[in-house]
């Protein structure tokens, strides 16, 4: 069976750490950084559980600042 794997890139300088993508992700892939902040002082989203991502783009759809790019590949 073909398996779908995904990955996201978060533009961390654009991210404001609103947490909406973390909540929207059906597989709990994303999380906010615990202490690390960007230049503006916001904690930002990052991939915490990389192998669970399916590239469904839910996170990118709800992102108000358009920080997330989604990549998806089908493994035969």
């Amino acid at each position: 069976m073909a398996k779908i794997k995904g990955a996201v890139i978060v533009d961390k300088e654009r991210c404001k750490g609103c947490n909406l993508c973390v909540v929207a992700c059906p597989f709990n892939v994303l999380s906010l950084t615990a202490k690390e902040v960007n230049k503006k002082g916001y904690t930002f989203a990052q991939m915490a559980v990389e192998e669970a991502c399916t590239g469904c783009a839910s996170c990118a759809t709800v992102c108000p600042d358009g920080c997330i790019s989604v990549y998806k590949v089908k493994i035969q």
Binding site: G55, G66, C67, K72
Partner: peptide, 8 residues
């Protein structure tokens, strides 16, 4: 080539 979503 695997890009499925990005900022418009």
């Amino acid at each position: 080539e695997n890009l499925v979503y990005k900022k418009p």
